[in-house]
Structures are given as structure tokens and as C-alpha cells.
Design a protein around this nucleic acid. Structure first.
Length: 595
RNA sequence: GGCCUCGUAGUUCAAGGGAUAGAAUAGAAGUUUCCUAAACUUUAGAUCCAGGUUCGAGUCCUGGCGAGGCUACCA
């Protein structure tokens, strides 16, 4: 049981006895390391309601709690802080309770369902480092929301139509000599990406020629034959031209196969895919309805706008003068479509980079004005860019870090470092390959998820593979050591409740510290779900592992002499392992039994 | 120009308005008869600047400075 649960009413009771009729804010925080105590009540905020000396009030409350509550073993007051200590019996009882819950840290069902959108790639190029951050965040937040009790549907919208894919299509048809990914032995998304680059090279070359002939930069950009050809292709596609549509389907399928392989490797998945080619016409009815409701207005040229100046924003176009959709139109329609497809869901999380902050602000506002009840439950999970030491990634300049290459590099580094340590010589080839994969990906995922989503990350591919300190492998290693303890104890499964001697033990500081950290886990899950932030789970997990390491290094587990103590410590270690595994699951990180 | 985000040890990250701003790395010094030393223990080092609100500010407000993003009848 959380200490707040029994402290809260007792404090209220004490205040009521000492100062009848007065209600005060009750604020807890965990006790800082250098002070004695397990939880701290902050007295300062109470002084607004009660004019008194904070130290005196602290002492009065401390004495009351020590007398009334068996769980409270003592207290001390430092300035306006009441540090409360708990009894060993309380900690032992807490371990017993946590240990008895197989799903410790997972909340009861909330009855709510949510949609989480992430990834949403374009089909003209392979996934890169930016997508990795997006995918890891979206997947992890989905897992965290599930643990907080919600039902989650993971979706992505695949941007499979438009000028970008036509550029790749045109370039492949011109220069590809009909060669397929199979014939070339490369992934389909790579092949299509290569022809996107090829297009750009040809396009640039043509611009140079036109400029040499005396055209302006703007004219050259608009008139280069490659661009005209790609635009013509887009028109043919929209007209349903059989040949173009067939080529589009064929090349998109290559890309989907490539994406699937990358998603598999990353360990992410989706419950449903949406395709822009099927949704890009949605939203027009909403615009019509909005016009009738007065949410939008029509300009003289026929274009439709939304006036957001009363919200401190500007006017936003939602329909062009020729009646065609813009991005916003599609997003309005797609949101409504998805909520209709999942009637049990009442909200949606969009995992999209922060360069679209403004877009989503506007989108949510418009949806709310259109009267959708779920519009208040929309959240833009906005994340910062991933920068390289060399600067920003630019796909056209070839400075992107390819997702597959990066994963491969991480796994190879994991292999090199692990083999050097030589602890896994008794594993089979397959087991080793799987282990290198687990460690390499664990390093990558943790490195990215431990950072607050909204902050930008400076990603140095060479230095990122660090297996020491605040890293994924550090956490995985701690888990592996715990499994080793359980194996050596002859007890590979959960420690049986019946064998544990729960009474009459004197706990060491390190055991109490570890238990306190373990008790925080359910709160951290709730907190992370409310903030949509895997970083909270990552940093908690790291704290837990550090706490375990000091415990492990300084307290004998298998060699414990006192009656029942070994079983108690085994149960503590086993629970720690379980919580580490649960947290890692929330982050999408696997933990190995041995490494 | 307008709007939005971010500025914390050399570096990468923490800190629900609360105590002496935590870690990790890199640097210096230690610990393997013992459950995995990818560990542990010591040590040194930081809130961009100037005001304000508060009993109390890295956190909130105002103004600078610096970095990035948005500001398309592109998606």
C-alpha cells in the first residue's frame, strides 16, 4: 500500500484535532538521501492556513503519526520538513503485497480506448533516424497507455500518393532498366529511395542547363522536363491511368515490404494502416458542414478559410479556390473517419515532429469547433528533431542516417564488445546472434527514449553505442545478473510465498531503499501515461537498477545466514527483476536471461 | 517582422514552486579468495544575462542574448 494512503487521513485527523475546522494542503515528497526518513511532509504550504511555527507544527504532526500509526516508526523535523520513517514490518508487508501481484504496475482497466498514430512514412524513401525516434516514441507511449489501463489501437497513415512517389516512379522508369529489388538484391524501399535521389540529380542538372540557356532560377525550377514529367504522372495517376497505377502499386509494394522488415527489426507494429490514396478526398463534407455552421467562411475567389484570430492565430485555408483539398482538409476527414472506425475510442494521440506544432494546434481547434466530442481528447505527441554533429539531416543531400544501417551498426558493436568480454562462450550461434540483437537494439532504444520527447537530440552515431552508465545494456545486464542469482538458488521461477520468512527480520538501509524505489513503479506508470513520456519510465528504470546494484554489491543474498533472510532477499531480487522487465516492456526493450 | 520550443558540470541527460541543483560520461584515486567487475567506492566540476513575483525560483512573469522550428491555394 502506498504510504500516502494511510498518512493522508491521519494527517487530516491530526490537523482537525489541533486546529478544528481548518483544512490545509498536504504535500509529500520523497526524502532526500542525506536526511533520515522515508517520506517527507512539506509543512510550508500549511502555513498559509495556519499561522504558526513550521518546526513546532512538524513535531506535533510527527508525534501524532508515530502514536497513531503502527507503520510509522519515527520522525525528525528539519526546518519546514517533516521526515517520517517507516517500520521494517511495513516494508516487509509491502514486499509481500507487491510480490503477490503477478501484474504489479499494471492498472485495472479504465474502460477507455485510444488511438495512437505514429510512423506515417512517405513511400518514396526508406525510414531514417527521425522515423526511429518517432516509432520508438509511438510504440512506447502505446505500451505505457495500455499499462495505465487503456485499450490502445496503433495506427499509421501511409503517404502513398503525391508528387514525391511520382518522382521515384519516373526516375525508375527512365533509368531503372526494369530491375527489381530481387534482381538487385536490395530492399525495395532502398531501391525506390535511390531513384528518388536519381530524380533529384537529373532535375538539378536540367535546371543548370536551363539557367545556362538564360532562364531564371525560378523558371528553371518550374520548367525542367523531369519535374514536368513527374507532374504529368501525378495527373495520370489521379485520372486512373492503368499503366501508371500499376507501376505505382508495384513500386509501393516494394516499399511496404522494405518498411515491414524495418518495423520487424525495431519491434514495432500496427493494428491498422490507413493509406492516403484512400483518404485524401475525405474531409470535404466536414468543410461543407462547417460552412453551414459558420465555422468557416468563403472568400470571393471560392477558397474556404477558418478565422482563428480570436485565438491568437491567423486565417487558415481549408479548401482551395478550385475546390480541391489541402493537408488540413484531409486531416479533418481522416480524424473523423478513424473515430468512426473505432467507436469505442474517445481520443487520439498523434506522434509527429514539432515542426508541425502549429498545424496540430489549428487542426484540434477546428475539430473542436466542428463540434466533435472527442476533439478535447486529442494530443499531439510532439518531439524534437534528431540532429547530427554535422548538422541537420537532409534526404536530398544524402546526410540521413538510414534506419536499417543504424540498427545493423548497433548490433555489430554489441557483438564486438560482448565477444571481447567472453562471458557467453557456452551459448549456441543462434542464441548469440539473438543476444547481440537484443543488446544493440536495447542500446539504441534506451538512448533515444531516455530523453524528454520535446527536446532535440544530438545523435552521434559513433558515440551513441555506449554500454556503460545510463544505457540500455546497463539495465539489461542487471536483469541478467538477477536471473543468474535465481538460477544459482535453484529457483528459476518466482520465489514461493510459503518459503519466505516474513517475520522478525531486521532490514538494512539498502533493502529499504530498494523497496521504496520498487513501490514507486505504479505511480511512475501513471505519471508517464499522463505526460505521454517514456523518458519518465526510462529514468525510473535506471534509478531502480542503480539501487539494485548498490544492494547487490553490498548485501549477501545467497550467503545470507539468518533464518528466512535468503528467501526474503531472493524475493526482493526476483521482484526487482520483474519490475525491470515490466519497465523495459513499456519501452519496447527486451531483457536477456544471460549476457 | 510575427508566433512557438529550447538554453543546467568539458560532454550527454535529470530535477511535480521546496532542503546543500542530481546522474552518467570524460579526468584523478581505489575495490576481484565472494551470487556475472558491462559492477561498486572516493574525488573535482554547472542553472545564458538583467530585473520582478514568493517565506522559497533551474522551474512562474517581463526584457535582453543565443540555438532551432513554424509563418504555402506543398504534404
Amino acid at each position: 500500500m502506498k504510504p500516502e494512503v494511510f498518512l493522508m487521513p491521519a494527517i487530516e485527523q491530526a490537523i482537525d484535532q489541533l486546529f478544528p475546522g481548518v483544512s490545509v494542503p498536504i504535500e509529500f515528497q520523497s526524502t532526500r538521501k542525506d536526511f533520515e526518513g522515508d517520506i517527507t511532509l512539506v509543512i510550508f504550504p500549511m502555513l498559509r492556513a495556519i499561522k504558526t511555527n513550521p518546526e513546532a507544527l512538524g513535531r506535533q504532526l510527527g508525534e501524532f503519526l508515530t502514536q497513531q500509526l503502527p507503520q510509522v516508526s519515527g520522525f525528525n523535523v528539519v526546518k519546514g520538513f517533516l521526515n517520517i520513517s517507516f517500520s521494517d514490518a511495513f516494508f516487509i508487508e509491502s514486499l509481500k503485497q507487491m510480490h503477490g501481484q503477478p501484474d504489479y504496475g499494471r492498472a485495472e482497466s479504465s474502460g477507455r480506448a485510444l488511438l495512437v498514430e505514429y510512423s506515417s512514412p512517405n513511400t518514396n524513401k526508406p525510414l531514417h533516424l527521425g522515423h526511429i525516434r518517432n516509432n520508438l516514441l509511438g510504440y512506447s507511449v502505446s505500451e505505457i497507455l495500455k499499462a495505465a489501463g487503456h485499450k490502445v489501437y496503433k495506427t499509421q497513415i501511409i503517404n502513398d500518393r503525391g508528387i514525391h512517389i511520382c518522382k521515384s516512379m519516373w526516375a525508375w522508369r527512365e533509368f531503372g532498366q526494369g530491375q527489381t529489388p530481387e534482381q538487385l538484391g536490395i530492399k525495395g524501399d532502398k531501391l525506390v529511395g535511390n531513384y528518388y535521389v536519381k530524380f533529384d540529380q537529373v532535375y538539378k542538372e536540367q535546371q543548370r542547363e536551363l539557367i545556362a540557356q538564360g532562364l531564371s532560377k525560378e523558371e528553371a525550377e518550374a520548367q525542367a522536363p523531369a519535374l514536368l514529367a513527374a507532374k504529368a504522372m501525378l495527373r495520370s495517376w489521379e485520372a486512373g491511368d492503368d499503366e501508371v497505377v500499376a507501376l505505382w502499386k508495384r513500386m509501393n509494394q516494394w516499399v511496404y515490404d522494405g518498411f515491414e522488415a524495418t518495423y520487424d527489426k525495431l519491434g514495432v507494429d500496427f493494428d491498422q494502416n490507413y493509406y492516403e490514396s484512400e483518404t485524401y478526398l475525405l474531409g470535404k463534407q466536414d468543410i461543407e458542414n462547417g460552412l453551414n455552421q459558420g465555422v468557416f467562411y468563403r472568400k470571393e475567389d471560392g477558397s474556404v478559410w477558418c478565422d482563428l484570430t480570436d485565438e491568437g492565430l491567423d486565417h487558415k485555408i481549408v479548401l482551395r479556390s478550385d475546390g480541391t483539398s489541402v493537408y488540413m482538409t484531409q486531416d479533418i476527414g481522416t480524424a473523423a473517419q478513424r473515430m468512426a472506425d473505432y467507436p469505442d475510442a474517445d481520443g487520439m494521440i498523434y506522434t509527429v515532429g514539432n515542426e508541425q506544432d502549429y498545424h496540430f494546434k489549428v487542426l484540434f481547434l477546428i475539430l473542436s469547433r466542428l463540434g466533435y466530442s472527442w476533439a478535447k481528447n486529442l494530443y499531439h505527441l510532439s518531439y524534437g528533431m534528431v540532429d547530427l554533429p554535422s548538422g541537420k539531416m537532409k534526404s536530398r543531400e544524402g546526410t540521413v542516417v538510414d534506419a536499417d544501417d543504424l540498427i545493423e551498426q548497433m548490433v555489430q558493436t554489441a557483438q564486438a564488445i560482448t565477444q571481447e568480454l567472453g562471458k557467453i562462450d557456452d551459448l549456441s550461434q543462434d542464441q548469440r546472434a539473438s543476444l547481440f540483437n537484443t543488446i544493440g537494439l536495447g542500446a539504441l532504444k534506451y538512448y533515444i527514449l531516455k530523453v524528454d520527447p520535446k527536446k532535440r537530440i544530438l545523435f552521434n552515431p559513433e558515440e551513441s553505442v555506449d554500454f556503460q552508465g545510463n544505457t540500455g545494456p546497463f539495465i539489461q545486464y542487471a536483469y541478467a545478473r538477477i536471473q543468474s542469482i535465481l538460477r544459482k538458488s535453484g529457483n528459476t521461477g518466482p520465489v514461493e510465498d510459503g518459503t519466505i520468512q516474513w517475520q522478525g527480520l531486521n532490514l538494512e538501509q539498502r533493502e529499504r531503499a530498494l523497496l521504496k524505489t520498487l513501490m514507486q513503479f505504479p505511480d511512475k506508470v501513471t505519471e508517464a501515461a499522463a505526460a505521454y513520456s517514456p523518458a519518465i519510465i526510462a529514468n525510473y528504470t535506471y534509478d531502480l537498477v542503480k539501487e539494485f546494484n548498490t544492494f547487490y554489491q553490498n548485501v549477501s543474498i545467497l550467503g545470507a545466514k539468518e533464518a528466512g533472510l535468503m528467501d526474503f532477499r531472493l524475493a526482493l531480487a526476483e521482484l526487482t527483476g520483474r519490475v525491470i522487465k515490466s519497465s523495459c516492456t513499456l519501452l519496447g526493450i527486451e531483457v536477456p536471461d544471460q549476457m
